[in-house]
């Protein structure tokens, strides 16, 4: 038996919004540690690694590890039937061919449940090595979304250049070119508005804006995003999943393979 109850149900709605445009289907691997999902997009260019920690749920029961094969578009449609302030409970019997979502209003005066068929998925799991990145950039997630959106006007790719002075995002195309430079924040009252660069060595890499724009769908989960880069390895874009109190409930990490000069 698997059962997980999340009082701040809107977090699960946001998690689904952050992956549904990038992935068609994936397995939720449920264990005592929590719910994990790892999947590549259909082009095998990007990888999503998602964790919802068991102690982030108000109730969490997982008698034995199970893998729930899910059509993510269907799950997203069902979660849209939950109000933002609903409490969401996910339930699956061992060896079941369906999963149940229960939505309770805060006053408990409206309870709905939806059953969704599970899929048999032959999932490939990739080993993600622990990496010491040459640069880790932390910035407001809204700022990163805006940069990706604005530079998409100019081209398909963005060059991210990280030096000790700050970060430069550049794009060029038939229209012309554009550059956005962010300096490290000297003094910020609010931590979530800070731009912080932790740099061992300068890095310049090129990435597809189309994928980065998919990743920015996770911005409602977190006020800050971190971009971790090293030469010739995939970029890691991480949004931490925090509740209203700021406690960590997990993360959404996206890995994107770089583009190279033809």
């Amino acid at each position: 038996m698997f059962e997980a109850r999340l009082v701040e149900g809107s977090l699960l709605k946001k998690v689904m919004e952050s992956i549904k445009d990038l992935l068609n289907e994936a397995s939720w691997d449920c264990s005592g540690n929590g719910m994990c999902l790892q999947a590549m997009d259909s082009s095998h260019v990007a990888l999503v690694s998602l964790m919802l920690k068991s102690d982030g749920f108000e109730n969490y029961r997982c008698d034995r590890s199970i893998s729930l094969g899910i059509n993510l578009a269907s799950m997203s449609k069902i979660l849209k039937c939950a109000s933002n302030d609903d409490i969401i409970t996910i339930r699956a019997e061992d060896d079941a061919d369906a999963i149940t979502f229960m939505f309770e209003s805060p006053k408990q005066d409206r309870v709905s449940d939806y059953e969704m068929k599970l899929m048999n998925l032959d999932t490939e799991h990739l080993g993600i090595p622990d990496t010491e990145y040459a640069c880790v950039i932390k910035m407001p997630s809204g700022e990163f979304s805006r940069i990706c959106r604005d530079l998409s006007v100019l081209g398909d790719s963005v060059i991210i250049c990280c030096t000790k002075d700050g970060v430069r995002f550049s794009a060029k195309g038939d229209l012309g070119n554009g550059n956005i430079k962010l300096a490290q924040s000297a003094n910020v009252d609010k931590e979530e508005e800070a731009v912080v660069v932790d740099m061992r060595e300068a890095v310049t890499l090129t990435f597809s804006l189309r994928y980065l724009n998919f990743f920015t769908k996770a911005a409602p989960l977190s006020s800050q995003v971190s971009l971790s880069m090293s030469e010739d390895v995939p970029l890691m874009v991480e949004y931490k999943i925090n509740d209203k109190e700021g406690d960590s409930k997990g993360y959404v990490r996206y890995y994107l393979a770089p583009k190279i000069e033809d």
Binding site: V45, H125, A257
Partner: peptide, 14 residues
């Protein structure tokens, strides 16, 4: 013009 590398090249099959 740039070529997109696929992610398979970096991570190992488990």
């Amino acid at each position: 013009f740039c070529d997109q590398i696929i992610i398979f090249n970096f991570f190992l099959d488990k």
